[in-house]
């Protein structure tokens, strides 16, 4: 009896020690995580603060947002670049998200496990690592000359869509894979067929992951200059594309798709390389606006996610 009691006590002590050791590891990992997070945030914050401080005189000047580029740094503005970036990103999002999500669903849910799927699989992962200038050259040959789409907003939107397809496909697949098997089994059990299961249960559950992938992809696309220059984006342009909405029927207008354009990163790049220090101030201010546009895009995605969740519950 006594021996048994000792054994129980001993094992209890051992158990407590184990718990304490695990807790120490937990705390250590958590602190490392927080440290890494803080370093990353501090880096981003310092870049942003530096840009804001440098670009402040331009950021507070409303002309900066409504003027076209100019040789005079104090009069130069980013209206054409802002509109260009917004329209190009619109095309990119509309083209890439449905395509990538469809591809992700197919690869995860429908594709038979054979060598062909494996090849597609490997290719998608590899494409995510291809330098963006390669996409630019592809688009120059295929879209600009091959399809005759010209140096337009449509071409730029398409090339950036291609660029971020792999990112969103991979994110979609990860998101779908993380859905518990039980959910599917439950749907099948109620008599749902494959498509009903995917569209009613799997996709809604995977939405946060897909949206996150979309944000990451679009945030990459918005900062790209190289492929957009390759397909012939302009640097100086003092008019805007025709507006996509009009007051007369049919109220929408797609002429803007074929308009010449410029985008924010090109404008930024051009100003950074100028000799005059005043242009560097403009470049910093452009950097801030670009970051704000990216944040706004993320904010929009988070808002959409929030709205979708509310709908799901009700």
């Amino acid at each position: 009896m006594e021996a048994d009691a000792t054994r129980v006590v001993a094992s209890g002590v051992r158990f407590q020690r184990l718990v304490a050791a695990n807790r120490r590891t937990d705390i250590m990992m958590a602190s490392i995580g927080i440290l890494v997070l803080m370093v990353a945030s501090a880096l981003l914050a310092s870049v942003l603060v530096d840009l804001i401080l440098t670009g402040w005189p331009r950021l507070i000047n409303p002309d900066f947002y409504t003027n076209f580029p100019s040789r005079k740094p104090e009069q130069a503005g980013i209206i054409s670049a802002m509109v260009g970036t917004a329209l190009v990103m619109l095309v990119t999002a509309v083209v890439s998200v449905p395509l990538a999500v469809a591809a992700g669903i197919y690869l995860e849910e429908y594709a038979p496990k054979n060598w062909l799927s494996d090849i597609i699989d490997i290719n998608v992962s590899n494409l995510a690592g291809v330098p963006s200038i390669i996409y630019g050259l592809l688009a120059l040959g295929l879209f600009v000359y091959g399809f005759g789409l010209g140096e337009t907003i449509l071409t730029a939107g398409l090339v950036l869509a291609l660029l971020i397809l792999p990112v969103i496909i991979v994110a979609t697949r990860e998101a779908i894979r993380s859905i518990p098997r039980d959910l599917r089994e439950a749907a099948y059990g109620l008599g749902a067929d494959k498509w009903q299961t995917v569209s009613h249960y799997v996709l809604p559950a995977a939405r946060p992951g897909i949206l996150t992938g979309t944000i990451v992809g679009l945030a990459r696309a918005i900062g790209e200059a190289a492929p957009v220059i390759t397909i012939g984006a302009l640097t100086f342009i003092a008019f805007l594309p025709p507006p996509p909405v009009q007051s007369t029927p049919p109220f929408v207008n797609f002429d803007w798709l074929t308009s010449p354009f410029t985008v924010m990163p090109i404008q930024l790049f051009n100003w950074v390389s100028r000799p005059q220090a005043e242009f560097h101030i403009n470049a910093a201010a452009t950097g801030v606006v670009l970051m704000v546009m990216t944040l706004a895009m993320n904010g929009l995605a988070i808002y959409i996610r929030y709205q979708l969740r509310k709908h799901q519950r009700s």
Binding site: V83, L87, M89, V94, P242, P244
Partner: peptide
């Protein structure tokens, strides 16, 4: 998103 972008670039 379409609506938001369109609104952002109204008068051109």
């Amino acid at each position: 998103a379409t609506a938001a972008f369109a609104a952002a670039i109204a008068a051109t």
